[in-house]
Simulated scan of single mutants.
Amino acid sequence: MVSGIQPSGELHLGNYFGAIRQHLELHERYESYFFIVNYHALTTIHDREALRRYTFEAALTYLALGFKPEKAALFVQSDVPEVTELAWIFYNLVPVSTLEKGVAYKDKVAQGLPANAGLFNYPVLQAADILIYGGTLVPVGADQKQNIEICRDIAQRFNRTFCPPDRSLFPIPEPLIREEVAVVPGIDGRKMSKSYGNTIGIFDEGKTLRKKVMSIVTDSTPLEAPKDPERCNVFALIKLFADEETRNRIAEAYRRGGYGYGDAKKELIRLIDEHFAEARERRRELLKHPDYVMDVLREGARKGRRRAQEMMEQVRDLVGLNYATYRSEAS
Rank of each mutant, 00 (worst) to 15 (best):
V2A: 07
G4S: 13
S8C: 10
L13E: 08
G14N: 09
Y16G: 11
F17K: 04
L24Q: 01
E25H: 03
R29I: 07
Y30Q: 05
S32N: 06
H40N: 08
T43C: 11
H46R: 15
R48P: 00
R48M: 11
F56H: 14
L60D: 10
F67G: 12
V76P: 04
S78I: 11
V83R: 06
T84D: 06
E85T: 10
I89L: 14
Y91K: 05
P95G: 12
V96M: 13
V109D: 03
F120L: 14
N121A: 15
L125I: 13
A127L: 08
G135I: 10
L137K: 02
L137Y: 07
P139I: 09
Q144I: 00
C163M: 07
S168E: 14
P173S: 11
P185L: 06
I187D: 05
I187E: 05
I187V: 15
K191T: 13
M192F: 08
G197K: 06
E205M: 01
E205C: 11
K207V: 12
L209G: 07
L209R: 04
K211N: 15
M214G: 05
M214L: 15
T218M: 08
D219K: 05
S220V: 10
T221P: 05
P222D: 12
E224L: 10
A225G: 00
P229V: 02
R231T: 12
C232A: 01
C232Q: 00
V234S: 01
A242P: 04
R247Y: 10
E252Q: 07
A253S: 15
R256K: 15
Y259Q: 07
D263Y: 04
K265W: 11
K265V: 10
K265N: 11
R270K: 15
E278H: 03
E278T: 13
E278K: 14
L297S: 08
R298P: 02
A301G: 09
Q309V: 13
M312W: 03
A324K: 05
E329P: 02
